[in-house]
Design a protein around this nucleic acid. Structure first.
Lengths: 182, 182
DNA sequence: AAAGGGACTTTACACTGTGTCAAGTGGAAA
DNA sequence: TTTCCACTTGACACAGTGTAAAGTCCCTTT
């Protein structure tokens, strides 16, 4: 709190005046990120995409890029173990929104008749959520050197291959040759 | 530290005598979990599985069940931001071991000729690592109510469907009917 | 038996961080 | 001019980490 106050150029007490608890700063932070990143607009864009495939891609992009952005807040909440705070409630709402978004994106695929035959809507939603669910982003970068962008890329290609019938490779021989699998 | 000392029935200073820093307690904890869970033995078992498919399944079981177990340690390290401590180094080694294990399991699939045609070994390893990489387990449970076991189950089925050619559904009509997709 | 040493104890202290309290200041609006 | 509000300084309570000093107990060595 001292450091933040110093960085903001106000006294520590002025900070406590506006944010009585440290967690109140977190709530404000999530709202600030929401404003700056305009994630709701990007999600709306993903909702208005024409085809299910576009929609699912846009959804993964929007959330995949947003979640690491707010990961620090989730981590802070985790550290503080603050189960009932406004910040925690706001966070949990966000996460519920991801699940709902998964469901909507998959339903769009289903309406288009592009959902791979082996998946029910719920099954596919589960899988998509599995792919998108909040990761330990810092650790991911440290462990395997993947950038956030690369991870999103991989997730997207994985999701499309998995969920959409016609994203499965059409020309096996090309792939075999390219990957040196004889 | 006070609480731990109290729980252990020793004085706070006795604790500091054996573990001068809090992170030293973490190192000891990872070692304790290693001993109790005998994860290396389970990984060795996965390495000695006959077929690539068995091997990849055993690997996901072994690691998928172990990682959430030690997640608290990783979380503690993250909280402490302790980049050079013994505990952090031990943790990073563990994570490197997962990646190596992924690679070995996928190579076994490849040797058996069961790796799906569209994947190179590296590509498949990346995907498997994506699925297994350390998650925010607490958040996962809070967000979607999945147990750890259910998550492992989903990951395993996802990996097999994705990586192994003949795990892809053979009878599309059965799946369509079962999932009410007309 | 005496001496030494190691593991542990109590007590005390320094330092950092959160959150509270009280009294004072300076400017803008009524 | 007065009043209000945001903000200031300074002090304090409290909890947690880590250090330091001195004493106790018990076991082993001589």
């Amino acid at each position: 709190m001292s450091d933040i106050a110093k960085a903001a150029g106000v006294s520590r007490q002025a900070l406590y005046l506006h944010f009585p608890k440290r967690s109140d700063l977190l709530v404000a932070t999530t709202r600030y990120i929401d404003d700056v990143k305009d994630v709701d607009a990007r999600l709306a864009a993903s909702r208005s995409a024409k085809t299910g495939v576009e929609r699912i891609g846009a959804f993964i992009d929007a959330w995949g890029n947003y979640i690491p952005e707010i990961y620090g807040v989730g981590k802070a909440l985790m550290i503080m173990g603050d189960k009932e705070s406004d910040a925690r409630i706001a966070w949990d709402d966000r996460m519920r929104a991801v699940r709902d978004g998964c469901h909507a994106a998959v339903r769009a695929l289903h309406r288009d008749g592009r959902l791979a035959a082996e998946h029910s809507v719920e099954h596919a939603t589960d899988f998509l959520w599995t792919l998108l669910s909040v990761r330990n982003w810092e650790q991911l970068t440290i462990d395997c050197g993947w950038s956030q962008a690369l991870y999103i890329e991989k997730t997207k290609s994985l999701a499309l291959r998995l969920l959409v019938d016609d994203f499965k490779p059409t020309n096996t021989k090309v792939h075999l040759a390219r990957n040196g699998l004889s």
